[in-house]
Computed example of a mutant assay.
Amino acid sequence: MAVVVLLVVVAGFAISLLVRVFQARKLIVDAGVPLQSKALFWAAVVYTISPIDLIPDPVYLDDIGVLLVALKALHAAAAKAGADRKGLPG
Rank of each mutant, 00 (worst) to 15 (best):
M1F: 03
A70E: 02
Q23R: 14
A24W: 02
A43W: 05
V69F: 15
D84W: 00
L54C: 01
L67Q: 15
I49M: 13
P34I: 04
L17T: 00
L40V: 08
K86R: 15
D53F: 01
I28T: 15
K86P: 00
P34S: 06
Y47N: 04
F13R: 10
T48S: 15
L6F: 08
F22G: 07
I28V: 15
G32Q: 05
K86Y: 12
Y47L: 14
A73W: 02
I52N: 02
T48M: 07
R20Y: 09
L88C: 11
V9Y: 11
A70R: 06
Y60L: 02
K38N: 12
F22T: 02
K26T: 10
L74R: 04
L88E: 02
L88Y: 05
L35P: 11
P51G: 11
S50G: 10
L18P: 00
W42Q: 12
L54N: 04
F13P: 07
I55M: 14
L6V: 10
F22C: 12
G87A: 11
F13H: 10
A14V: 07
L17P: 00
D63Y: 00
L35I: 11
A78V: 01
L18M: 09
D30M: 06
I55P: 00
L61I: 13
P56Y: 01
H75Q: 14
P51I: 06
V10Y: 05
A81R: 13
A39I: 13
L61H: 08
S16I: 06
K26S: 13
V66Y: 13
V9T: 13
I28H: 05
A24G: 07
A73K: 05
Y60H: 15
K86G: 12
I64H: 13
V46K: 01
S37G: 07
L35Y: 10
P89N: 08
P51Q: 03
V5N: 05
A76N: 15
A77D: 00
V29L: 10
V8F: 08
G82E: 04
R85K: 15
A77G: 04
V3W: 09
V4A: 11
V10H: 09
D30L: 02
V3Y: 08
V46R: 01
L54Y: 13
A81L: 01
V66G: 03
V66L: 07
A39M: 09
V10N: 05
L40Q: 04
I15S: 12
L68R: 14
M1V: 05
G32P: 11
V4H: 10
D84I: 01
V29S: 14
A11C: 06
P51D: 10
A73S: 15
S37W: 00
L71Y: 01
A11E: 10
W42H: 14
L71A: 05
I64C: 08
V46T: 11
P89W: 07
V45S: 00
A83L: 04
L71T: 02
A77K: 01
L74N: 04
A73L: 07
G12M: 08
A78R: 10
G65W: 04
L27N: 06
A70M: 12
A44S: 12
I28N: 04
D57C: 04
A81I: 13
L67K: 12
D57G: 12
P56D: 14
A78K: 07
P34R: 02
L71N: 06
V59Q: 06
D62R: 13
A79V: 01
D30C: 08
V46M: 09
G90Q: 04
P51T: 02
V9L: 15
A83Q: 02
M1I: 05
G82F: 00
G87Q: 06
A2H: 11
V66T: 10
Y47I: 08
